[in-house]
Deep mutational scan, measured.
Amino acid sequence: RPRTRITDDQLRVLRQYFDINNSPSEEQIKEMADKSGLPQKVIKHWFRNTLFKERQ
Rank of each mutant, 00 (worst) to 15 (best):
R15K: 09
E31A: 07
V42R: 11
L51V: 08
L51A: 11
E31H: 07
L11R: 13
V13F: 12
P39C: 06
K35T: 06
R12E: 12
N21T: 15
K44M: 06
A33W: 02
N21H: 12
Q28A: 11
F18C: 07
R48P: 02
N49Y: 08
R48K: 15
H45T: 12
K41I: 11
S25K: 11
R5P: 15
L51P: 05
V13S: 11
K35Q: 13
N21S: 12
I43S: 00
N49R: 13
F47R: 00
E26R: 09
Q56A: 14
M32K: 00
R55I: 09
Q40D: 10
K44N: 04
R48Q: 12
A33P: 00
P39S: 13
H45K: 15
D8Q: 14
P24H: 02
P24G: 01
R3K: 05
D34G: 12
I20T: 10
Q40C: 08
Q10K: 03
K35M: 05
L51H: 13
Y17K: 05
F18V: 04
E27H: 07
V42C: 14
Q16P: 05
I6T: 02
T50C: 04
S36H: 10
T50V: 09
D19M: 13
Q40E: 15
N22A: 13
S25L: 03
R48I: 12
E31V: 09
S36A: 13
L38H: 00
W46F: 07
I43L: 02
I29G: 00
F52Q: 11
S23N: 08
F18D: 03
R48D: 10
R3H: 15
Y17P: 00
Q28F: 02
Q40L: 14
E27P: 09
F47Y: 04
P24K: 01
F52E: 12
L14C: 02
P39Q: 07
H45N: 14
E26H: 12
E26Y: 12
G37S: 07
K41P: 05
D9L: 09
R5F: 14
P24L: 04
K44W: 06
G37D: 09
R3T: 15
D8R: 05
R12V: 13
V13A: 05
D19V: 13
R48S: 08
L11A: 11
V42F: 04
L51W: 04
E26W: 04
D34M: 09
T50R: 10
R3G: 15
N21V: 07
E31M: 08
L14A: 00
V13L: 14
T4E: 10
F18S: 09
E54P: 03
R48L: 09
E31N: 03
M32P: 00
D19W: 08
Q10C: 03
E54H: 14
R12N: 10
R5W: 10
P24E: 01
P24V: 03
S36M: 07
N49C: 14
R3W: 02
R48W: 04
V42H: 03
I20H: 12
S23F: 11
P2N: 15
S23L: 07
L38T: 02
F52S: 11
A33G: 05
Q40G: 09
A33Q: 06
V13K: 10
R1W: 00
M32N: 00
P39E: 12
A33D: 00
Q16V: 07
E31K: 11
V13M: 15
D9Q: 13
K35D: 04
P39W: 02
F47P: 00
L14S: 00
K53W: 04
M32L: 06
F18H: 05
Y17W: 06
P39A: 10
D9F: 12
Q16E: 11
W46V: 06
H45I: 09
E54Q: 13
F18N: 02
N22M: 13
D34H: 14
F52V: 14
E27T: 12
N22H: 15
D9I: 06
T4F: 15
L38Y: 00
R1M: 01
P24S: 00
R12C: 10
Q16M: 12
K30S: 06
R1P: 07
I29M: 12
R5I: 15
K41H: 04
L11Y: 04
Q56P: 05
R1K: 00
R3L: 12
P2R: 15
L11G: 09
V42M: 05
R48G: 08
S23I: 02
N21R: 08
K30D: 07
V13T: 11
R5L: 15
D34E: 15
L11V: 05
R15A: 05
F47D: 01
R12G: 10
E54T: 10
R48V: 09
E27Y: 09
T7N: 06
S25R: 06
S36C: 07
E27K: 15
V13Q: 13
L38S: 01
G37V: 03
L14N: 00
Y17N: 09
F52L: 13
L14W: 01
T50K: 14
R12A: 08
Q28W: 01
I29A: 02
I20R: 13
Q56C: 15
N21G: 07
K35S: 05
N21Q: 09
N49F: 06
Q10I: 02
N21C: 08
N21A: 12
R55S: 14
N49Q: 09
F47A: 02
R1N: 14
T7I: 01
T50F: 03
P2L: 14
H45R: 10
Q28N: 07
Y17S: 06
P2Y: 10
L38G: 00
I6Q: 02
T50W: 06
P39I: 06
R15I: 06
F47N: 02
Q40S: 13
L14K: 00
D34Y: 05
T4H: 02
K41G: 15
T7L: 04
R1C: 08
S36R: 00
Q10V: 02
N49P: 01
Q28T: 12
K41C: 15
N21E: 12
D19H: 11
F18G: 05
D8T: 12
I29C: 04
S36Y: 06
I43W: 01
G37I: 01
D9T: 13
I6R: 01
